[in-house]
Design a binder for these strands. Structure first.
Length: 1070
RNA sequence: GGACGUUUAGCUCAGUUGGUUAGAGCGUUCGAUUCACAUUCGAAAGGUCGCAGGUUCGAAUCCUGCAACGUCCACCA
């Protein structure tokens, strides 16, 4: 392109698509291809950020745009620094949120009850269609934002690889006893028919009627409630232990006829009751309140469920109420109570209603059988590199989560969020992970149910010599010792009263012999089954062998406990099918028996080994553990085949997102994981503070549990984007700014800048179109600076080397020195996540120093082409992470060669190392002088614009020197000229008429302000810090008052600062 | 009820271990513009740093209390 044809204004809309295509096709987004593009990426250090996967529920908003702008800035910066950058792209299925949204759409389309009318498969199909569309939009939007990630590596929280990770972790946790199925009070959303975690439930302030009443006319204690309909489920009345009014009732069991239902209430005393509230007595409803459930557990009160999953009253509420909604029931109850004269008081009180986070539907608390992650359960650590524990130590998930942040292995920015994090972790309750919706990871648990129940009676074999010695037999097949024979006979006596249809023994000698002795004289058929064998340990083992060491990993080429579990599982399947309804005795060994505990009795290996076997060993020799086999439950990472039914529930979406940092890097596939292992822990997690608990905390939980390491080193929490009045952007207010509208209007670079500049971590940001417009103006400024340089210099000078020893004039030295200082500061600031101030620094340089001063000065002097091109190249490099499109475009137009996005930061600036030697301090004095001149000129009314350009610096200096034609002035002007141009020119430009009096001592400005100011510029506050600290330390009062530790701290820091300063001074001397 | 923030120019915000005269952008006012850029340039005005105490040679910065606003968590049944 001919430089003369460059348009006056930068047209972002016209060039961005092409630029992005160029980047994408180059392969520079792919960390593995970087080395092909530039050899410096060979063996480069990894740098990794996982993209917080946007929900596939629709389109991206400005919050996403902000996230993309910040992360792309970091990625581009580190890529230019020479790191192998991997920005992991992906999207989130968002389980509940998505299903809810699609169901709502379907309802609008006329399908009244999508779940019922379409069924699981069809509904999932519709969701998949929606989700696919959503995904395409999201990818397109990310690209429009200029995000430099490689979508060929796209991951999805619900794809096959992530599913394997989810199932694997579920199984691990199940085996460690961290996941359990329990009957507990959970949050239930009757509208969407699913459970919700504590974090998905919100409180909404409402007014409610607080009714004070007695259960029936004769009941001695009055209670208050806002939810009379739950009172059918009351099983207790709680009072404060010190409350004299009720002391006589404590411990008694009272009955009442509550609106037609006979209820039994135990009066309990508990500290949790506030004697000052209401009547001081509290009706305890264990089934419908988490708080009451805790109370009930402490005092052993039963649970009665009176509200069903449909949100209506159950049969427990009696015939008159069954099937009514809670509101209807409430009204009716109050009426009935009033009729009976039981109501003492009705008042309106503020109450916070539980509602689902999405939508407005109220949430009920009900007891249900659900899956939970137990955060307070201690378990044995597999491998852990956090430092506090070693393999085999015990810890709880909560402890892992706390320690990761406490030890600063995860640093949260801004720091105050650490407190919030700890508070949340400390108050964390078990996490309900099962959801009754269809869209999501189905729980990896399968059941096989049998037509009839089979009863299995476990019979231990008698002792062999090895058993007596307490050594493990390995694969040896010893006969019973004499003691063992006696044991077998004795066992027979113990089982004498019981009849068996069949005896199944393992095929090892000791089991077969035991069968013969124990069941001698009975007419029971015997069957041998090799699957009941003891563990094959490969070879004989010593006494020190421990079962817990090879639960998962096989020992010496033999079997692991898990292998045995597989054998027993297949055995049970056969037994359940072949012998339904029979009573069977099985003679087998220790490990197979533990497997029975695991498979039938729902225990983890860790548990059975630790708790059951050792404690109950004596009992084992007495025979007769019974197992009732009516179904088998199997937790597996893949379907076990036909005849198995899978748990229909799905997992909380955050279970899969919690694995995101490593499930995206190939885990648990050994090969893939090995290849990308180096990227974990990832370098930084950047996201909004609103999902600190939902997501950030759960990633820390999962990563420290599964891998024993933190998921990321830094957490950068950005604030929310709000409208110009500080309100949340919402469709109902109509104040939503859509990135897709803004980008064509102002350009992506302007939108990105507006989201990064003027913001700090954790702080909400007010955004208006005015602000974006200002940054559009700035991109145009950069464009015009470039246009000026490109049109005023020859293209053959674009990449010419700069010989620093040839730079002699003051403005040249000054601008290069400024550039040197600026890039150092910008680098430091980006590294410490101070994007806004980094941008300010750059903008001040670009606009304030370069455009307003240096370019103006350069107009009056030829021969600055190398410097101008040099500065432009570097300016583009420094701005690139902030404004990728316009900088890449200019780089292209200028013909600097190659792709800007993989140019080395700071690359060409390396040669600037030496510029610190120059003394440019007098430039500032001159600048002040010029500004003074302008002001004076304005004040004294020099005819404007006639001889001198309004904005330039150098011509005004010339003017100044001509103001008073006398010897003194001439000297000054000669000196000024020398300073600016490095020489005294032969003649002067333009003649200036008029006279302006100025009295500035130019010579005085030249020799002052040397080393100190220069050092200050480079090291910031160091010099003054040293001075003030030294002064403070010398202060006798301070020294005597301050604690020793403080003084020492200050001394240390002082030494550091001095060393820093000295290093700098040395550098300057070279 | 508990915790955490915020309060600095008309507006949006910087101000990193306390240290010369508290900064920027926008806006306002005045002025300039044959120039790479009117998407420009220059200048000016505008601040008891929320309030009240305290520590210090020195406080926007540290401590205490108060107020307003905001957010999160818990919840009185």
């Amino acid at each position: 392109m001919d430089m003369k044809d460059l348009p006056k204004a930068y047209d972002a809309a016209a060039v961005e698509a092409d630029i992005f295509k160029q980047w994408e096709e180059s392969g520079a987004f792919d960390p593995d291809k970087l080395a092909e593009l530039d050899p410096r990426y060979k063996d480069a250090k990894p740098y990794c950020i996982v993209l917080p996967p946007p929900n596939r529920t629709g389109t991206l908003h400005l919050g996403h745009a902000k996230m993309l702008a910040i992360e792309d800035l970091l990625i581009r910066f580190h890529r230019m620094l020479g790191k192998k950058t991997y920005w992991v792209p992906g999207t989130d299925h968002a389980a509940l949120a998505t299903q809810v949204k699609v169901e709502q759409i379907l309802v609008k389309e006329g399908i009244k009850n999508p779940r019922k009318d379409l069924g699981r498969e069809k509904l999932l199909e519709r969701i998949d269609q929606f989700v696919q569309k959503s995904r395409d939009t999201i990818v397109e939007q990310c690209k429009r934002m200029g995000s430099s990630m490689d979508w060929k590596r796209e991951k999805y929280t619900l794809d096959a690889e992530r599913n394997l990770a989810v199932n694997t972790v579920f199984k691990m946790m199940y085996e460690d006893g961290l996941i359990e199925r329990g009957y507990r009070v959970v949050n239930w959303d009757p509208t969407f028919q699913t459970t919700l975690s504590d974090d998905e439930v919100e409180h909404k302030e409402t007014q409610a009627e607080l009714v004070t009443f007695t259960y029936d006319k004769d009941f001695p204690i009055a209670i208050s409630t806002t939810r009379p309909e739950t009172k059918f489920g009351d099983t207790g009345v709680a009072v404060h232990p010190d409350d004299k009014r009720y002391k006589k009732f404590v411990g008694k069991t009272l009955t009442a006829n509550f609106c037609g239902k006979q209820i039994t209430l135990k009066v309990i005393a508990d500290e949790a009751v506030d004697p000052k509230f209401g009547t001081g007595a509290l009706g305890v409803t264990p089934a419908h309140s988490l708080i009451d459930a805790d109370l009930a557990e402490r005092h052993g009160l039963p649970m009665v469920q009176v509200i069903g999953q449909d949100g209506k009253m159950t049969s427990e509420a009696g015939k008159d109420f069954e099937g009514l909604t809670t509101i209807e029931a409430r009204k009716k109850i109050v009426e009935m109570l009033e009729k009976q004269g039981c109501v003492q008081k009705k008042e309106t009180v503020p109450q916070s209603l539980l509602i689902a986070q999405r939508g407005e539907s109220p949430v009920e608390q009900l007891p249900m059988r659900q899956w939970f992650v137990r955060v307070n359960k201690s378990f044995k650590l597999r491998n852990n590199t956090l430092g506090k524990w070693k393999k085999g130590d015990e810890a709880t998930l909560k402890e892992l989560m706390s320690y990761a942040v406490e030890s600063k292995q995860v640093k949260i920015l801004p720091e105050n969020f650490e407190k919030i994090y700890f508070h949340w972790v400390n108050n964390l309750r078990d996490w309900c992970i099962s959801r009754q919706i269809w869209f999501g990871h189905q729980i990896p648990v399968w059941y096989k149910r049998f037509a009839n129940t089979t009863e299995l009676t476990f019979v231990t074999h008698g002792s062999t010599q090895d058993n007596i010695n307490e050594t493990y037999s390995g694969d040896s097949d010893l006969p019973l010792a004499e003691q063992g024979r006696q044991e077998a006979v004795k066992q027979g006596e113990l089982l004498a009263g019981q009849n068996f249809d069949l005896v199944i023994t393992s095929d090892l000698q000791r089991a077969v012999e035991t069968a013969d002795l124990t069941f001698a004289g009975r007419k029971v058929p015997f069957v041998q089954d090799a699957r009941l064998r003891e563990i094959d340990l490969g070879s004989p083992i010593t006494k020190d062998m421990r079962l817990e060491d090879h639960v998962v990993e096989p020992f010496q080429g033999g079997e692991s406990c898990k292998d045995v579990e597989g054998r027993i599982l297949s055995f049970l399947e056969d037994v359940g099918e072949k012998y339904p309804g029979k009573k069977i005795a099985i003679i087998t060994h220790m490990a197979p028996q533990l497997a029975l505990e695991v498979l039938i009795n729902n225990k983890s290996w860790e548990e059975v080994i630790r708790d059951d076997w050792r404690k109950q060993k004596p009992k084992a020799w007495q025979a007769g553990w019974k197992y009732v086999l009516n179904d088998i439950k199997l937790v597996a990472s893949d379907t076990p085949g036909e005849g198995w039914t899978r748990d229909p529930d799905t997992l909380d979406t955050w279970f899969s997102s919690g694995l995101w940092t490593f499930s995206t890097l190939g885990w648990p596939d050994k090969e893939k994981w090995a290849k990308e292992r180096e990227y974990h822990p990832t370098d930084v997690l950047e996201t909004g503070y609103d999902i600190l608990f939902f997501w950030v905390a759960r990633m820390i939980l999962m990563s420290t549990y599964v891998l024993g390491e933190v998921p990321f080193k830094d957490v950068y929490l950005h604030g929310l984007v709000r409208d110009e009045k500080g309100r949340k952007m919402s469709k109902s207010i109509g104040n939503v700014l859509d990135p897709l509208d803004l980008i064509p209007k102002y350009g992506t670079d302007a939108v990105r800048l507006s989201l990064v500049m003027g913001t700090s971590p954790g702080m909400d940001q007010k955004l208006s179109e005015d602000k974006i417009r200002d940054f559009r103006n700035f991109t145009n400024k950069l464009w015009n600076i470039s246009r000026y340089i490109l049109t005023s210099t020859k293209s053959e000078n674009r990449n010419s080397k700069l010989d620093l020893s040839e730079i002699k004039t003051l403005p040249d030295q000054w601008i290069l020195q400024r550039l040197d200082i600026v890039w150092r500061r910008v680098t430091k600031k980006i590294e410490s996540y101070e994007f806004s101030t980094a941008g300010d620094e750059l903008r001040d340089f670009t606009w304030g120093d370069l455009a307003d001063w240096y370019l103006e000065i350069s107009k009056d002097k030829e021969g600055k082409e190398e410097i101008l091109n040099f500065i432009l190249r570097n300016l583009l490099i420094l701005w690139h992470p902030f404004m990728p499109f316009v900088t890449e475009y200019i780089w292209n137009v200028a013909g600097f060669g190659g792709l800007l996005m993989i140019k080395k930061w700071p690359d060409v600036l390396d040669e600037l190392e030496k510029v610190i030697e120059w003394d440019t301090s007098s430039f500032y004095k001159l600048r002040d002088l010029i500004v003074d001149t302008r002001r004076l000129r304005a004040e004294q009314g020099v005819e404007p614009g006639k001889y001198i350009s309004g904005a330039t610096g150098s011509s005004e200096l010339a003017m100044m020197s001509l103001i008073k034609e006398n010897e003194e002035t001439f000297k000054k002007r000669a000196r000024l000229s020398e300073l600016i141009y490095g020489e005294v020119p032969d003649g002067w430009p333009a003649t200036v008429s008029g006279t302006i009096q100025i009295g500035i001592d130019v010579s005085g400005t030249i020799d002052t302000e040397k080393e100190r100011e220069k050092i200050q510029r480079e090291v910031g506050q160091t010099v003054s810090y040293i001075k003030s600290t030294e002064a403070k330390l010398k202060n006798k009062e301070f020294a005597s008052k301050a604690p020793e530790k403080v003084v020492n701290d200050m001394k240390n820091k002082l030494e550091e600062a001095k060393a820093k300063l000295k290093a700098l001074e040395d550098r300057m001397k070279v």
